[in-house]
């Protein structure tokens, strides 16, 4: 009898931790139904507020937009890297690229954004180069705007995107390319008809991860957007911490949680359906 309880004893401490998180999440839910004035339950007032107030709504739509764009750009930039790394690079080259990616994957996000400030700022690398080359007299405005945030987001999610893609590219069967080639497919058609479809699971995984990371990004809009770019995490932080409006902050967090869950379910579902179609 005792023996059957052993696994439950083993997982108990971890579950206790998870229980704290679940309690916290349910408090978020609870608070989101309160009124901002602190005079008790108010039903869906906060959610209605988020849905009807144009400026709040903008935080959500704009975050989704920025997340979509940055994910797409990261996919375009990341695919060649993952492909080169797995298909063309020599083993030692691959190892170095891999270590570099991991170093970036593990490097501090705040400091990476700081590096980007040094590049995109008024007197940053790009502007100095541009003025030195005589391309422009006045510095370009490259940050504290949408562009700066996008660059930051892309730079932040690229390692995740590449590391999601390279697994699926590494598993590509080279024989399939050769078979297609012998059957008369030139390289570009092999890429479109064989390589790309077989990479779909990795593309979906990388897209999901990158999209969520961008959507939830806080540091980038704060540092590269100067707090002036409307992203959900900024709204939640402002409401919860700076304005002490916990109900509205909680409601926004609840909506973000739902959106994230929906994205996970959607993309995972797509991936499963795609693969189940032709797998055993």
């Amino acid at each position: 009898m005792i023996a059957r309880l052993v696994p439950y004893f083993l997982v108990a401490p971890a579950l206790l931790l998870i229980a704290v998180l679940l309690t916290g999440l349910s408090s978020v839910l609870g608070w989101s139904f309160q009124s901002s004035a602190g005079d008790g339950a108010a039903g869906l007032v906060q959610y209605a507020n988020l849905a009807t107030n144009e400026s709040y709504r903008h935080f959500f739509t704009y975050s989704l937009w920025l997340a979509a764009i940055s994910t797409f750009v990261a996919l375009l930039l990341g695919f060649p890297v993952a492909y080169y790394m797995e298909i063309n690079a020599s083993p030692s080259q691959r190892k170095w690229i891999f270590a570099g990616l991991l170093a970036m994957f593990l490097s501090d996000y705040v400091l990476k954004m700081f590096g980007l400030i040094l590049i995109l700022g008024r007197s940053g690398l790009v502007n100095r180069l541009a003025m030195w080359l005589g391309v422009t007299d006045a510095p370009f405005k490259l940050m504290y705007n949408e562009f700066g945030v996008l660059v930051g987001l892309v730079s932040g999610i690229l390692p995740y995107m590449i590391l999601s893609l390279n697994g699926v590219i590494a598993r590509l069967d080279k024989r399939l390319h050769e078979a297609a080639s012998v059957l008369g497919a030139p390289p570009w058609r092999i890429f479109l008809l064989i390589t790309l479809p077989l990479c779909v699971p990795g593309i979906l995984a990388g897209t999901m991860l990158s999209f969520l990371l961008s959507l939830n990004s806080f540091v980038t809009p704060m540092l590269l957007g100067g707090g002036r770019v409307d992203m959900i995490a900024v709204l939640i932080f402002d409401q919860a911490i700076n304005l002490a409006n916990l109900p509205l902050g909680s409601a926004a967090a609840g909506v973000l949680f739902l959106i994230s869950g929906a994205v996970i379910l959607l993309l995972n579902g797509l991936g499963d359906r795609y693969q189940k179609r032709f797998q055993r």
Binding site: L215, N216, A233, I236, A240, F257
Partner: peptide, 26 residues
């Protein structure tokens, strides 16, 4: 249980932050 232990991966960081803040308040 396996899924539960992995759950924090799927909670957005801001949501996790505010959840822990509210938990501590409580």
């Amino acid at each position: 249980i396996n899924a539960l232990v992995m759950a924090p991966l799927f909670v957005p960081e801001v949501v996790m932050g505010i959840a822990m803040l509210l938990w501590a308040n409580a």
